[in-house]
């Protein structure tokens, strides 16, 4: 499906989702369960797809080998992916692309960005046209300085 960037614009995408048992290739997103054991030589750039219950500690040492981390949302109400993304950015300092895949809705766009997602994969129910940022002057826009507490803490609340 179409990929949307943090500005809400559709972007070209070189990544492919890896088939089960396929050998890792550049620009493949491999499910966490299919990831070759640590130490094995991997092609680059490589992506990994995390289920919502992934334990980041288990792959902490290998995060540097991924250019992209996709995080699955089985249902939009399942908010574990927000914590995964934020922890990747904040605790592990992951600098690559973080992509939301699965069931997310346009009303979550700002929250996804604020947790550190950089792109998302759209669905037929919510095509690219439904995703757009609130206007730059709107308090909902991630660039807005925020309520008093956020302004005082200089967005020390953000990732």
């Amino acid at each position: 499906m179409a990929i949307i960037n943090a500005q809400g614009r559709e972007v070209a995408d070189s990544w492919t989702t890896s088939e089960p048992d396929a050998a890792p290739a550049p620009y493949a997103i491999i499910p966490l369960a299919d990831l070759p054991p640590a130490g094995e030589k991997l092609p680059a750039p490589l992506g990994v797809q995390l289920p919502p219950g992934a334990v980041l500690e288990d792959i902490a040492a290998r995060l540097g080998s991924f250019a992209l981390i996709a995080i699955e949302f089985p249902k939009f109400r399942d908010g574990r992916g927000f914590t995964l993304a934020r922890t990747l950015r904040q605790k592990y300092g992951f600098k690559g692309e973080i992509r939301a895949v699965g069931h997310v809705i346009p009303d979550q766009f700002v929250a996804l960005l604020r947790c550190g997602f950089s792109t998302l994969s759209t669905s037929p129910e919510h095509p690219a046209a439904q995703w757009h940022l609130p206007s730059a002057t709107s308090p909902e826009n991630p660039a807005h300085p925020g309520q008093l507490l956020h302004r005082l803490m200089n967005r020390g609340l953000a990732a």
């Binding site: 109400r77 908010g79 929250a111 996804l112 309520q147």
Partner: peptide, 17 residues
């Protein structure tokens, strides 16, 4: 009030269990 502002539209904690 600090907790209210912190939790309002909290990007990470709006879809809790």
């Amino acid at each position: 009030e600090i907790l209210r502002q912190w939790s309002t539209d909290h990007p990470e904690f709006t879809y809790l269990p």
